[in-house]
């Protein structure tokens, strides 16, 4: 950004202040991981200079699904029904593909009731940032296990989870999702870079973010607690994101790097940290995810990235224009067309 008058408030490339990206006050529990993610979303949209009126926020039902109310007040929000956010978002994005869609869901909303819609959204590559605020429990109904709870994890009352967890990232890679990331609400720097890259991505960007539930799942025996996540997080790489409107890679330390460039010129720079990992290799992503599950590792980072993959509106060969703005004469064929149809039925 160019230099400004020292006393002026800090603004982004649109001249908007960060407060222009904030939302209503959160009503979640004090210390909830979701609130941290909310703050990172505010920062990411501010830093990326996205016009708030072009953003559409979607969610289903649950604690996580309340959060779109807590960011981007100037954007449109649609809090729908449990597990069905993907279809609402798909319809809205098809109707107006110039919208930047962000959906926030939870592990119950996504991995249980909504797993069908989740899978088909991924399969279709609907342009949408899809954040799963994953805490392994149903918070709003007071602490039942969800389908992402790990085998052997315990509830506060000692109940042991005896079913294997659904691994949303493996599922996403398997279904062809071209942006699959796992992060931790406690790792703000990594989460911020991933969020900015997700905003630049033109298909479905899945962010499976471990976001501890301080009320029902932050105890000894939980594998989704702050302590467990901090102790076990193993980043695959350090991530730096440089949007197309900037040209420095200031915060990326020197060393072995791999750049992945988006169609708009934005770059994600991966700096390896001990492990040789190529985030553009789908087979490797699946293998590493599989292996980490066996070893009970908590790998974070961008697991798979393929920015060129065509998204649903492209596959449908759709116009770029928001559908409601197409003039009537283009969506109502002329009288001659009706006459021709009638003639064919004589």
């Amino acid at each position: 950004m160019s230099a400004t008058v020292p006393s002026a408030p800090k603004t982004n490339r649109l001249g908007l202040a960060k407060s222009d990206y904030e939302g209503a006050k959160s009503t979640l529990c004090l210390g909830c991981g979701h609130d941290v993610i909310t703050k990172q979303i505010v920062t990411a949209f501010y830093e990326m200079g996205v016009e708030p009126h072009r953003v559409a926020k979607f969610s289903g039902i649950g604690c996580s699904s309340k959060t779109p109310n807590y960011f981007l007040n100037r954007s449109w929000g649609f809090n729908g029904v449990h597990g069905r956010m993907p279809s609402l978002a798909t319809g809205a994005i098809l109707a107006n593909r110039s919208l930047v869609g962000i959906g926030v869901s939870g592990d119950g909303d996504t991995a249980s009731i909504g797993i069908g819609q989740f899978m088909h959204l991924l399969r279709r590559n609907v342009p949408l940032i899809y954040i799963v605020e994953n805490n392994g429990v149903y918070g709003l109904t007071k602490g039942q296990f969800s389908a992402t709870a790990d085998l052997g994890a315990t509830l506060k009352d000692g109940t042991v989870n005896d079913l294997p967890a659904v691994d949303l990232c493996s599922l996403a890679v398997e279904l062809g999702c071209a942006f699959v990331a796992r992060s931790f609400s406690g790792d703000m720097k990594q989460l911020q870079a991933i969020l900015q890259a997700a905003i630049a991505h033109k298909g479905t960007a899945l962010l499976d973010v471990i976001s501890p539930c301080v009320t029902f799942n932050d105890h000894e025996g939980s594998t989704k607690s702050y302590k467990y996540a901090k102790d076990h997080e193993e980043p695959l790489h350090e991530i730096g994101f440089v949007p197309f409107f900037e040209d420095t890679l200031a915060e990326i330390p020197p060393g072995e790097v791999k750049d992945v460039t988006f169609p708009d010129g934005s770059v994600v720079r991966f700096h390896s940290v001990g492990r040789d990992y190529d985030p553009t290799n789908r087979e490797q992503a699946l293998a590493v995810l599989h292996e980490s599950r066996q070893k009970k590792e908590f790998l974070t980072g961008i697991l798979y990235l393929a920015p060129e993959q065509p998204s649903l509106p492209d596959v449908l060969g759709m116009t770029d224009e928001p559908l409601h703005q197409i003039p009537l004469e283009k969506v109502r064929p002329p009288k001659a067309a009706l006459d021709a149809i009638m003639e064919s039925l004589r």
Binding site: L88, G91, A92
Partner: peptide
């Protein structure tokens, strides 16, 4: 379920 979800999402975003 998805069909009607998409209809409502699209209607919300202004499309017929």
């Amino acid at each position: 379920i998805a069909a009607i979800g998409m209809v409502i999402g699209a209607g919300w975003a202004g499309a017929r």
